[in-house]
Nucleic acid binder design. Structure first.
Length: 273
DNA sequence: CTGGTTGTTAACCG
DNA sequence: ACGGTTAACAACCA
């Protein structure tokens, strides 16, 4: 559930908190989330200084001396910072200790990743190397989005959620992105006109930027345990089945969009163009 | 016990 | 090849 806004904020917080500091031991309790044996991971991490952290889609990438630490929180979770004497949460998959005794705890609900990759082999890391466009980058123009949609039968929502095409959008923000653009999630890519592509492009950036400005979603915590300021009132149609559309007051409908659920205003987001 | 949920990938099918 | 569907996988809740 943490999507680009939350991941961007976590990366920023990690960067601010950890730059220049070094890791010592790691306590890795879920071997399945690692990309190597736990003991090898611990040995490699030992002594590595953190030079910076940034985001790439739903991944946090921390640049260390010789490695990149790559964290993906999957369907939801927290990275929490603890001073040396602070208690740790009960549920966690990993503890990364710093040289001064402070620790990071990493917990995810399901299917996260904690990977350590030698920096010169970063391009071989398939899960991050295959990520698509950064929707907040200058290079993500309406034309670039249009190129992904043009001539494709693929449904718009399926494209938005495809991390190899556009990196960082998840189900939760996709609902409101499509509503803001007045585009139905099941419209085939080729059916969008130039104005609709432009509206979708603007909706992607507005929706993500607004969530960033508010500190991320209210059900996610920052490094220090504080929840985000993007709350239920900021959602337009997502998870608001039966409530009035903020534009036209038509009841919002919940529909099946492939494997996920979608929330649409049947009046504002017409399936027929 | 059942099923929905939220992400990602692979396998399978048309 | 493209894209949709399904299952599978570290849970958890109602």
């Amino acid at each position: 559930m943490p999507e680009l806004p939350e991941i961007l904020l976590r990366a920023r917080e990690l960067n601010d908190a950890l730059a220049g500091r070094a890791f010592t031991v790691a306590d890795l309790r879920q071997p399945k989330c690692l990309n190597m044996a736990a003991d090898a991971f611990t040995i490699a991490l030992e002594g590595q200084r953190i030079h910076g952290a940034h985001y790439r889609g739903k991944w946090i990438l921390a640049r260390l001396d010789a490695y990149h630490l790559l964290i993906n929180l999957g369907m939801g979770g927290e990275i929490l910072y603890h001073e040396a004497d602070d208690p740790l949460p009960n549920k966690l998959q990993a503890i990364l200790q710093l040289a001064d005794g402070a620790r990071l705890s990493i917990h995810f609900w399901w299917f996260g990743h904690i990977h350590l990759v030698a920096s010169e082999r970063l391009t071989e890391h398939a899960l991050t190397a295959s990520l698509g466009l950064d929707p907040l980058a200058d290079t993500f123009t309406p034309e670039a989005l249009g190129a992904l949609l043009a001539g494709r039968r693929r449904r718009v929502k399926s494209l938005l959620l495809d991390q190899t095409q556009i990196a960082g959008i998840g189900n939760m923000y996709a609902h409101d992105i499509l509503f803001r653009a007045r585009v139905h999630p099941e419209r085939p890519g080729y059916s969008l006109c130039v104005d609709e592509v432009a509206a979708l492009h603007a909706a992607i950036q507005e929706t993500l930027q607004k969530a960033i400005d508010l500190g991320g979603a209210f059900w996610e915590q920052n490094l220090y345990g504080a929840i985000g300021g993007f709350n239920r009132d900021h959602l337009l149609v997502g998870y608001k089945e039966g409530l009035p559309c903020p534009t036209c007051a038509t009841p919002i409908e919940k529909i099946k969009t492939g494997a996920t659920s979608g929330f649409v205003c049947p009046s504002c987001q017409s399936l027929i163009r």
